[in-house]
Design a binder for these strands. Structure first.
Lengths: 148, 148
DNA sequence: GTATATGGTCAAGCTACTTGACCATATGCC
DNA sequence: GGCATATGGTCAAGTAGCTTGACCATATAC
């Protein structure tokens, strides 16, 4: 594959990622959740199952724990999360989603599903499925970072 | 398709995009270009063919023209671009890449090709091709924006 | 029981953006 | 030609989200 083809693929991937982010954000706002930024979605993804500590969240997002702590401050202030004592470690605090936080996460899922549905209209269900399988196989481990 | 599947596809796409950005950036730095940020790559993409005005660049990046002007300042200071009088509009200035700018853009292409090659090792050439074709068909028009 | 490591926060600083004001030139209209 | 308005660009100041550095509380190793 030529460099120019690799660049075209890269550019397309990044453009689609940017557009997807915008659509999810717009969809979440349209469902009545204000003051949320795209990065909050990635925090929700880590907090959703059983909560997480600030340090775990920092690793997930690829930022300092101070930055993660500030982000949690913001989520708490806006009513999407709360800090609880950590069972088994008196130093730590377990950050969990509130009911509003869960509702916001569901709204993000719906918005993502809408965006993916639009791709289905262009590509067809089978190709979207193939896209998903292909991407899942090259998905890296490690922290989730902003695309630039 | 269920919401959770759409979310898995979205998360994979965004994770791959973040990783790709990181790899291109690392590859460019490894080739000796310092002080460049990922957003500069998107600026290069707009400036590369024939140059562009600050306002055109701002539209391309989805930022204010002041921000675009500051970014051009930075590129000029670092030797990657220069401002020339615009032929045919004395108000405007045409921003073009210098030889160093072109070299940096080529380095980014090589780094992108390396990253794509790694995908090929996992997926095979044919599936990478299919991925490219699929993504190109759902690539939006309009400004290129950070993924979050 | 003491030394060190880890979870978390407070405070200050930096960087890349924003908004607002302004100047120079271009364009539309009489 | 002359004036009103639109457009390209920059300067200046403010802001948001991150960083680094310092510090405290608790856990862990020996």
């Amino acid at each position: 594959m030529q460099n120019s083809e690799a660049m075209a693929l890269s550019a397309a991937l990044l453009a689609v990622a940017g557009e997807l982010t915008r659509r999810i954000h717009d969809g979440v706002v349209a469902r009545g959740f204000e003051g949320v930024r795209p990065v909050h979605g990635y925090a929700f993804a880590r907090l959703a199952p059983d909560g997480a500590t600030v340090t775990e969240l920092a690793v997930h997002l690829g930022v300092t724990k101070q930055a993660a702590s500030q982000l949690v401050d913001e989520l708490v202030r806006k009513g999407y999360a709360e800090r609880r004592p950590h069972p088994g470690d008196a130093r730590a605090r377990l950050v969990v989603l509130t009911e509003a936080g869960w509702a916001c996460a569901r709204a993000a899922e719906e918005a993502a599903a809408e965006a993916v549905r639009a791709w289905g209209d262009v590509l067809g269900e089978a190709q979207v499925h193939a896209l998903r399988e292909g991407l899942l196989r090259i998905t890296p481990d490690g922290p989730i970072r902003p695309a630039w």
